[in-house]
Design a protein around this nucleic acid. Sequence first.
DNA 1: TACAAATTGACCATCGCTGTCATTTGTCCC
DNA 2: GGGACAAATGACAGCGATGGTCAATTTGTA
Lengths: 345, 345
Amino acid sequence: MKITINDVAKLAGVSIKTVSRVMNNEPSVKQATLDKVTAAISQLNYQPNAAARNLASTRSYSIGYIYDNPNAYYVIDMQKGLLEACRKHGYELLIHPTNAKSVGIVQEVIDLVQHARLAGIVLTPPFSEMPEIAEALDSIGVDFVRIISGSTPSPKLTNCVLVDDFTAAFKITNHLLELGHTDIAFLCGDEEHSSSGERLAGFKAALTKRGIQANPKYIVPGSYSFESGVKGAKTLLALGHKPTAIFACNDEIAAGALFSARLSNVEIPQQLSIVGFENSPFSRQTWPPLTTAHQPNSTIALQAAELLFRHARPGVHLANTEQQPVFIPELLVRESTAVCPATRN
Amino acid sequence: MKITINDVAKLAGVSIKTVSRVMNNEPSVKQATLDKVTAAISQLNYQPNAAARNLASTRSYSIGYIYDNPNAYYVIDMQKGLLEACRKHGYELLIHPTNAKSVGIVQEVIDLVQHARLAGIVLTPPFSEMPEIAEALDSIGVDFVRIISGSTPSPKLTNCVLVDDFTAAFKITNHLLELGHTDIAFLCGDEEHSSSGERLAGFKAALTKRGIQANPKYIVPGSYSFESGVKGAKTLLALGHKPTAIFACNDEIAAGALFSARLSNVEIPQQLSIVGFENSPFSRQTWPPLTTAHQPNSTIALQAAELLFRHARPGVHLANTEQQPVFIPELLVRESTAVCPATRN
DNA sequence: TACAAATTGACCATCGCTGTCATTTGTCCC
DNA sequence: GGGACAAATGACAGCGATGGTCAATTTGTA
């Protein structure tokens, strides 16, 4: 029933040591032997016993994904990308949703890593932006990869996958500017998430480049939630001089803003343009569907895991620049944006 | 650094075997020894090495969750419940998203179970409703728990957690009836999912009880997606005699129907009431928010896992009736439903 | 052809725990 | 007090792989 390394060795006519060498990609295996062994492995559909491997080897064959994100679609996409990478490299994925704000969070992460003997760990915001987590992980010598918001690779950001929110926000804002909007408001996400700051910076940069000064009243603090969008838009629409467009920091906020505009009988996009960010599935499930920026989350996750695996292989280290793939979310124009009413006709 | 069973044994002044006994809740350990060992365990913060346990024992300490569901919120909720149960009982969770319709799916499941040496597996629709999966799992002697749609425990449904879609749909329909609606349409989910059939049956039963015959034109086949809701509502609104209420088989369909109604300038809920099912987060993120039925997914998942663990413990079997907890999703009235226009004032 | 280098195998210890079976300890009763 | 039997504990051999060492074999090269 169970196929062990011995069965493979017997079938291939080699010693188990050689099979082990093949399984671990060790050099100094002749091509011919490698082929024989590979054939035997696939003929028997052999898969090494993970438990035995973990036990015997100093190396580990599982990675962890720690998250605290209310956006289910984001998490599922991340998992998908991570699992794909894991399958490809024969790793297992351990998921660990938790509360980033709990007091013992650093210890919790350490316990997780040590208990499960993880080869490494993938961090997304907010964990990827908590210096104490990175330090703790460094101090116990566990590899990790961070997915963070940033535009320029730098030596300080080792083992990071960057998502260039700045440039994406810049482009989105340009889209609105090109439609003739100048009174553009910005609904922020959580302050702790640097993505919110980066997006705001890109927004401001685009305005500045056109010689427009951002109206402080149009920049509304908030959080990455539907409710926050509802509240933010309500504030904006109560203003004497209303904006003609709203840049929401993500799709949920945008959906909330849309909701709020409806309550106030504001027509979208005729009277007010709204853009989101992320291209989460429900940006397509609002009415009208949201103009947004597409973030290829599972590809990002896959790259992050690959980075971890390369790094985790003892002795293999990459140059810093190569370690920092940069993804730029892409503008996706749908029906929630239109030409500014003032400039129309 | 790493604390092993030996350290605990030394500190407690017993043999490692005794520590092992304590760890596995075996009987025949004197209370005094048990206390000594327990103290040592907590003093050292000892956690057994999962790999070693898996290797040495015939028992396994991980369960799998196989899914193929586009609803990210559902999946995340399930994972949450499963993880909670796993943590409590010292199990690991292996997640495995896959395509239920691929040809080699049965073999894929078997491979997964055998490769990962799973103690058991949790199945949600559509997997929980595929007899070939259950048979395959039975034939290789792997425990599994199915979460399925059904109202009455029966000996045939061993190891099932039931979600009583029938009763919930009955109640929802009653809600509409009480608002004076009689021309009520039903937007079906995927035919393969028995939940859709159960909900339809509950719907029909409620109508029948009031002496109303369901209009066949009002029962629209479809799938669990936003797009399906858009299309279904479009069909309904093109009818000569339009329904005054729509029962959508889930929130996504309902959101699509809402979208479609807006496109046709139909006011919700003044001209048309719409109800969803599931209480997924975005039922709160439509305008107006959807009346729906709340399904406690993570609790359901937790129960399912507990059932698996009890069953997986060799020698412990439960009576059939006790093995079938039944959950009835609860009516949640929000703003997408109102009194039938014809009966108003 | 000879010699060095590359490839492979034999063998053992080891990882941390569980299963089996033997041994010790405790209890009860006559 | 001693024998019988049960309860509690321990000794030891694996589980299935990896890692290391060294010897044996094959291969490549001059």
